[in-house]
Amino acid sequence: MNDIILGIETSCDDTAVALVDSEGHILSSVVASQLDVHNQFGGIYPEFAARAHITAILPAVNEAFKVAGITPQDIKAIGVTRGPGLIGSLLVGLNAATGLGLGWNKPVVGINHLRGHLRSADLEQQRIIFPATILLVSGGHTLLAYMKSATEIELLGSTADDSTGETYDKVGRMLGLGYPGGPVVDRLARQGKATIPFPRPVINKGLAFSFSGLKSAVLRYMEANPDAPHEDIAASFVQAVMDVLIKKSRLALKQYPSRSFAIVGGVAASPQLREEAAKLCKKMKVALCLPPLRWSTDNAAMIALATFDYLNLSIHKEPVADLQLTMDRF
């Protein structure tokens, strides 16, 4: 009963708490969404995100234990996101975790949010076949990584500016679709034709990404063509994003021979991305790993699972915020 980790994730706008065992089985996973808080702003408002975490965190912890049917004495340790993320949000989770750890006499380990995302593909069941190439596409991050094993991770390339999810949100706002933009932009894109030649930023420059130019191009196009059908704008934008993501993924798979390709992060929910990735994997003869959508977005189960990696390697990172954390660090 003692091989259970309490995971806490508050890096952005969701207060998430989960209890997970070393096999990746989820005993409970509680996510308090702040969508209603941020909807009116068309994006995440950091101050209000931190305020919402304060009121949500303890009820979420309490609920997680209630659902799992265990007590705090049954857990081995607490894993909490230490970065990257919004500083005000991270501090709530980190300080809540350390308070709990002291009171329950349990170790508290600071976890890299990005490593959590990579591990999300193995929640509930082992899906990734190593070595693997992983595409992380979310509201805060866009990167490609190579995993020789669950703990040997190499960063191949990341975005120099906006993340894919952020770009989706901003284009969604330009199109008057509200927040979050991803699902609605994808839906609208299905109804249009990709006839507008939006740029594919840095598509031929290795494994790095850049999306701010694409976002600006959409804005400029809409200003110059106010009557252009929004369906076609969405379709052209989504096609540009897909072209970049798939071309970079193909290049990574060529350069880093892999047995599987996984997509994690909120944008993994994109039907267009899933279809394109399926085609790519068939062509490249690698297994496609797509975790259930509930584990693609920010959650604490992935943080708990990553905590086992840290403990197995005897890596004890202090539960202190680090906004500059990169994928290759613990």
């Binding site: 304060i54 965190i57 303890l58 309490n62 709530v92 809540a96 709990l100 009171g103 329950w104």
Partner: peptide, 13 residues
């Protein structure tokens, strides 16, 4: 918030 998050969770635990 740092102080409150810590105090609340310590009191809870």
């Amino acid at each position: 918030r740092t102080g409150i998050a810590f105090a609340n969770s310590l009191a809870y635990s």
